[in-house]
């Protein structure tokens, strides 16, 4: 992928393969994410997106290849890598019966933030996602979009340099989806975060995004959207995606 050549990449995945029993989930996947990049990891359900996220977040280890977060190998320097990483999982992971602030405080403790610092950070991230007034509400009382924003706030609490989001707009209405997308893009622009945004929804790929297209566990193309579209000799990213994912697999409707 293009970008600053000298700086340490925010994320570097090098020829990673992984299999569950007989099924190969990832096959020689390489992804490089330059600093301050918003990158969409695009793939159909079952393409390997969640597996890749599980490997980067070290739920389990990659069978082969290496993964580095800001230059820290996730296997050899797991703690250093995880400290620089913020994650929003596909499934909801907030405690519904606890308040927004309590959820965030728990996460701050998981990162060893002293109480005073935690308090400042909780206030800061809630402000960042425009939910300061809901700090003492139970998560159960929030809308789906608001809960997602709390999860994003939580992922930002320990000031990571790389933010991973796995299908963050699942289950949200169109308006909330757009709001989340805009919000995360702004984080990338204003705070200099790198973002890897996994989705199967093509309309979440902006015209200036970087995109990595994953299909049946392989990267079929990667780069700025315009280049990918040109290479696929397509008119737009939707068409390019359709062409690329039909090339080596059963016909599936995107």
């Amino acid at each position: 992928m293009s970008g600053t050549q000298n700086a340490t990449p925010s994320l570097e995945v090098l020829s990673v393969s992984h299999a569950f029993a007989k099924r190969k989930a990832l096959d020689g996947v390489s992804v490089t994410l330059a600093p301050k990049t918003f990158c969409v990891l695009l793939g159909l359900n079952g393409a390997g997106k969640t597996t890749l996220f599980s490997l980067v977040t070290r739920l389990y280890d990659n069978a082969s290849g290496t993964i580095e977060v800001l230059g820290h190998d996730v296997r050899k320097e797991a703690s250093q890598a995880l400290r620089r990483l913020g994650v929003v999982f596909q499934q909801r992971t907030l405690d519904l019966d606890l308040t927004v602030a309590q959820n965030l405080k728990y996460h701050a403790a998981l990162h060893g933030l002293p109480p005073a610092k935690a308090k400042t950070r909780v206030r800061a991230v809630l402000e960042r996602v425009a939910l300061s007034d809901r700090a003492d509400d139970k998560v159960r009382r929030l809308s789906g979009g608001q809960a997602r924003r709390v999860e994003i706030a939580r992922a930002l609490l320990h000031e990571p340099r790389l933010l991973l989001l796995d299908e963050p707009t699942v289950g949200l209405d169109i308006e909330a989806r757009q709001a989340i997308l805009d919000h995360v893009r702004r984080l990338c622009d204003e705070d200099g975060l790198s973002v890897l945004w996994a989705t199967h929804l093509i309309d979440e790929v902006g015209p200036e995004s970087e995109v990595v297209i994953l299909h049946h566990g392989r990267v079929v193309d990667a780069g700025p959207v315009s280049e990918v579209v040109t290479r696929a000799q397509a008119q737009d990213i939707r068409q390019a995606f359709a062409t690329l994912t039909r090339a080596d697999g059963p016909l599936e409707d995107a």
């Binding site: 400290r83 728990y106 701050a108 998981l110 060893g112 933030l113 002293p114 340099r161």
Partner: peptide, 23 residues
Amino acid sequence: GATAGSDAEPYGAGAYLICLRGI
């Protein structure tokens, strides 16, 4: 936040205690 490459300070006993207490 921690910058690329450079190592963040390893956690001290206090941080471990904060984590345990939080859980």
